[in-house]
Design a protein around this nucleic acid. Structure first.
Lengths: 107, 107
DNA sequence: CCAATATACCTCATCTGTCAAGGTAAATAT
DNA sequence: ATATTTACCTTGACAGATGAGGTATATTGG
């Protein structure tokens, strides 16, 4: 990965929620999606991902259920809740505001 | 302040370097400048500021000297070094890259 | 004149998100 | 048979941000 973690810090939850807005998914898949979407410029570390899942679930932003795979490894799916949608909207607004501020400060 | 610290995290040093590119300055002034530039949307906390100064100095990105005020409180001035200019260029490139990545992921 | 506020510096302990390193288990490819 | 891929997870350590505290001088309002 080329982007340092401190710059991406704080965006993990928003990135996850954004993915779940499209459709339910599971950890491994979300991780692959992010790498693909960014042409391997950014890879969420597993530990980071799972700790974000825990925070999001505890906050009521996502719900989880086990997939009914009869073949292959079991998958724990995540789906976004109504609260999660609101949280995402907030995150996004915040990001847009922060982006402008930083652009302004980094002349 | 309206922006959460985790989103700004990692940008402190770049913000300071950017200010020092224009002219030497001191802690208190840099802080005020940032608030003004952002219409009070963002305020660097003092502890954050001074710990960033320490990191920057240790990394050789800035040099410090005491002002010769004969009146008022003493001021410790900071000036950017050649290494600091290079570091700033790197920070800025990184920011632009990160901005695109996040924009891509938060849709 | 005196109290409050502003200028200006600093430190320490704590908090939080990230991540390296480790683990489990099943399926598939070589 | 063995290596790789899919898929999950935990623990401890690290680093930047910050609340809370401190020092000292100058200015301003009542």
């Amino acid at each position: 990965m080329s982007i340092t973690s401190d710059i991406l810090r704080g965006h993990t939850e928003a990135i996850i929620l954004s993915h779940l807005l499209e459709h339910d998914s599971y950890g491994y898949q979300i991780n692959k999606d992010i790498m693909k979407k960014t042409n391997n410029a950014y890879e969420l570390k597993e530990a980071t991902l799972y700790s974000a899942f825990r925070r999001l679930e505890q906050a009521g932003c996502i719900r989880t259920y086990w997939g009914d795979e009869t073949v292959g490894a079991r998958r724990r799916y995540y789906s976004i809740t109504e609260k999660g949608r609101k949280a995402y909207a907030d995150y996004k607004r915040e990001w847009q505001e922060a982006r402008e501020i930083i652009d302004q400060l980094l002349n």
